[in-house]
Design a protein around this nucleic acid. Structure first.
Lengths: 209, 209
DNA sequence: AAATTGATTGAAAGACCATTCAGTGAGTTT
DNA sequence: AAACTCACTGAATGGTCTTTCAATCAATTT
């Protein structure tokens, strides 16, 4: 039979595919059962693959978790960097794009938020996080500070410094993420976005409304 | 020998003492080795007690963890409720006291923050948290909303609603806690407190400076 | 002082986990 | 088509965890 249309997966696949499959299954397992429930048995069952494959495509379970964290960090960075080089965007537009990215469905959903906070909650991975992903965070902060400096200069604002505004923003990002994760019925992406924009219209009234 | 001065502990102690000892050892273990490293062996060794005591004073390890979370939530509530019934405090004073409590050293330190985020990070305990401690959070939110309503009325402010201000505050609280935990060298309690006060002086300029 | 009570101990049991590795079989080369 | 390669499988291994429980010991009662 000609099964060109069927999505039946081949018995063997390129390493990249398998690695991605396992990372995805890891995120699903963590979001459903927590880090302690994300056993190799659970992960490989979720992926529909055999137990031994993790140690074949990754050095160890720890390596798989580190790669998962790296994947999340890079996916997030790709999203907010996307619109930064558009020449027709004002600094306020660009800052807006970064805020949008923070609450974009691809990044800000139960599955991914669970994983972020699972890593934050485990001391061992906090260390791993700082060494592999914190540059990405700091990079975003640098960019935001630069944008805020421009905005402050444009509007001749006398309020808090660019650094203060950005630290408040970063705090808001994390805190609103946590609230969305903890109380999904009360906090939505939309509401969180509105919250941040409301703060920005308070510090930079001439630029945001 | 008369060892009245020695602090040598008796071989047996009231249940309340033992329970408190074990809860404290649990917090220390979680903060040092994460939730997955907080085994009963590690916890009881930290407390200087024997392995079997946990299941004697608590039903199970799970019950010990739930009690630990409850202890943290109640300790936190006791702190911010402390100054609310002072008749000589204005609404702004009271809101200030709640913010102070949020970053009080007794609550906002590495040991306790580690435990908070360890629980937030584990899906299973998020559920437990919602059922045992979220009323405490909501209670604080209610109080804050009431205070903000008074402040808005007093100052005749046209900015965001009391509900919006409080949700932003709650987001800021959690986010700044996380930053203090993740980057203790960059973020301090003092700085976080300043951040929140800076926000308040932006929304309620006549009341905060 | 003997008996009783109840907190405390730690070895043992039972369950589960990450990792290993000998074997399997699909696809490729010769 | 035979030999070969290598992604893939899952049972077996060794280690660690929670929970149980019979024994111990100090304090209190009889």
């Amino acid at each position: 039979m000609a099964d060109a249309t069927s999505t039946k997966s081949a018995r063997t696949a390129p390493a990249k595919t398998r690695r991605r499959q396992l990372i995805d299954a890891t995120m699903i397992s963590i979001s459903r059962h927590g880090i302690s429930g994300a056993t190799l048995t659970a992960i490989t069952k979720e992926a529909g693959l055999s137990l031994g494959l993790v140690n074949f495509h990754f050095k160890s379970k720890d390596a798989l978790l580190a790669e998962t964290l790296k994947f999340l960090a890079e996916e997030h960075r790709d999203l907010w960097m996307q619109k930064l080089d558009r020449a027709d965007f004002t600094p306020a537009d660009k800052l807006c794009a970064i805020v949008d990215a923070q609450f974009h469905p691809r990044v800000c959903n139960r599955k991914k938020l669970s994983v972020w906070f699972a890593f934050f909650g485990e001391g061992a991975y906090r260390k791993s996080y700082r060494s592999t992903s914190s540059e990405i965070d700091l990079e975003r902060q640098e960019v935001c500070i630069e944008l805020c400096r421009d905005i402050i200069a444009e509007g001749d604002y006398a309020g808090p410094s660019a650094e203060d505004v950005v630290q408040t923003l970063e705090g808001l990002f994390d805190g609103l993420w946590l609230n969305i994760l903890m109380y999904p019925d009360l906090f939505t992406r939309k509401k969180a976005l509105g919250q941040v924009m409301s703060y920005l219209s308070l510090v930079f009234p001439k630029h945001f409304d």
